[in-house]
Amino acid sequence: MEKKLFDEPMTVINLGLPGFFDSVKGQGAPCIHVDWKLPAGGDVRLLEILDRLHEMEEAEQNA
């Protein structure tokens, strides 16, 4: 017996990789693509630096 995963029609929001958007769209499902990338390419060291610099700036603004 076929079991449906979703009871309602699906609307998809795709973040990041456009290949998933193309795939969903190709199957006729409503889908919007959000062009999003991991900040700093996901590099933890760079993210930590950016966070620190942004926090420093905010602290100065609020002082």
Binding site: K37, P39, A40, G41, L46, L50, L53
Partner: peptide, 8 residues
Amino acid sequence: IMKVVETG
């Protein structure tokens, strides 16, 4: 450079 690194 902060914007470049942040946005890629």
